[in-house]
Design a protein around this nucleic acid. Structure first.
Length: 294
DNA sequence: AACCGAAGCAACCGCCTACGG
DNA sequence: TCCGTAGGCGGTTGCTTCGGT
C-alpha cells in the first residue's frame, strides 16, 4: 500500500513537471497575458514557472510575440506591406526579424510564412529557384508594379484629385536595390503615383532608407495619420497574385518591363492567350514566356 | 456527404550569439 | 578564457481549414 501511494505520488510529480507542447489553450493564454501585464516580459524560463505554465520559456516567448502581444496586427497583408516585404527581402534576404521591424504589428513568423506560401509558391510553379536572379527580377518587374498600381488605384478611388489609369502606368519603373540596373531614386516612381510630391517622397524615403528606425516606417508610428496610411491602407482580402488581374506586361529592351499599348489592346481584344482573369495562369503564362524564355 | 490534396499558419527545433560568473 | 544560460533567429514540421471532385 505504502509503495502504491509512493508510485502514485511519483507519477503525479512527473506529470506536474512534464512540459506541455502543441497548441495553446485559452487558459494558458490568459495565464501568460495576465502575468506579463503585471510583471512584464523577459526572463522567459522564470516567467513560465512563475505564471504556472508548463511550457518552456521559449514557447512562452514565441506565443507572446507572435500571437498575444496587444499590438499584433491580424488579417491579410496590405499591398503596401507586401511591397515593402518584397523590397526589403530583395535587400536583406531571409532576415525576417529585420524585415518585420519595418512592418509594425507584423511578426517575423508571419512574414516568413507569407514568403514561403505566396512568393515561393510562384517560384515552384515556374520551376525556378526562388533565390535566383531570374525570379527576383520577375518579382521586380511583374509583381511590384502591380502592387504599386493597385495601391495607386486604391488611392485614386479615395481621392478624386489623383487618378491613375492603366495607360498611365506605361513604362513604369520600380524602385529597387535588387538590380543595379535600376538604381533607386525618387524619379523611379510613376508620375501618376501621386500628384503630391510630398507623399511621393515619403514613400521613397522608406524604401530608400529601410535602415531608418521602425518608428519612421509605415503604420501607426512615425507616419501615423500620415498620407501614407490614407494613401495606401487598402483592405483587399486575399490580395496578392490577383493583383495581376487585367494587367498585360511586355518586355522592352534590356530586360526592363513595361506596360505596352499593343498588349493592352491585345488584351482588350481578347488576344492574350489564356484567360487573364486567373492570376496563377497569367503569372505562369507571362513569366514562362517573358522571363524564363520558354 | 465524404474524401483528398493543397494551402495557411502556429508552434517547435536547432543553431548562434550575447552575457554574466 | 571558459562555461552555462537566456534569448533571438531562421528553418521545418504538423495540424487545421478550405476547396475541388
Amino acid at each position: 500500500m505504502r509503495r502504491a501511494i509512493s508510485n502514485k505520488t511519483i507519477a503525479r510529480s512527473n506529470e506536474e513537471f512534464e512540459l506541455r507542447r502543441g497548441p495553446w489553450t485559452l487558459e494558458e493564454d490568459k495565464l501568460l497575458t495576465h502575468y506579463i501585464t503585471f510583471h512584464g516580459e523577459g526572463r522567459w524560463n522564470l516567467l513560465a514557472k512563475c505564471a504556472g505554465l508548463r511550457r518552456t520559456g521559449k514557447s512562452c516567448r514565441l506565443r507572446w510575440l507572435n500571437y498575444l502581444k496587444p499590438d499584433i496586427k491580424r488579417g491579410n497583408l496590405t499591398p503596401k506591406e507586401q511591397l515593402l516585404i518584397l523590397e526589403l527581402h530583395s535587400k536583406w534576404g531571409n532576415r525576417w526579424s529585420k524585415i518585420a521591424q519595418h512592418l509594425p504589428g507584423r511578426t517575423d513568423n508571419e512574414i516568413k510564412n507569407y514568403w514561403r506560401t505566396r512568393v515561393q509558391k510562384q517560384a515552384r510553379q515556374l520551376k525556378i529557384d526562388s533565390n535566383s536572379h531570374k525570379f527576383l527580377e520577375a518579382i521586380r518587374c511583374f509583381w511590384m508594379p502591380r502592387l504599386l498600381e493597385k495601391m495607386a488605384q486604391a488611392s485614386s478611388s479615395s481621392s478624386s484629385s489623383s487618378s491613375i489609369s492603366t495607360m498611365e502606368t506605361q513604362n513604369l519603373t520600380i524602385p529597387s536595390q535588387l538590380s543595379n540596373q535600376t538604381p533607386i531614386n525618387e524619379k523611379s516612381f510613376p508620375s501618376s503615383y501621386s500628384s503630391d510630391s510630398t507623399q511621393k517622397s515619403q514613400v521613397f524615403d522608406i524604401l530608400k532608407n529601410p535602415e531608418s528606425p521602425p518608428a519612421q516606417s509605415f503604420g501607426n508610428t512615425g507616419y501615423s495619420n500620415s498620407v501614407l496610411d490614407d494613401y495606401y491602407q487598402v483592405d483587399i482580402s486575399n490580395f496578392d497574385m490577383e493583383c495581376f488581374n487585367n494587367s498585360v506586361i511586355s518586355t522592352q529592351g534590356s530586360g526592363d518591363f513595361s506596360f505596352s499599348e499593343r498588349h493592352i489592346s491585345d488584351w482588350v481584344n481578347g488576344d492574350m492567350g489564356p484567360t487573364f482573369w486567373d492570376m496563377d495562369e497569367l503569372w505562369q503564362y507571362r513569366m514562362a514566356e517573358e522571363v524564363v524564355g520558354v
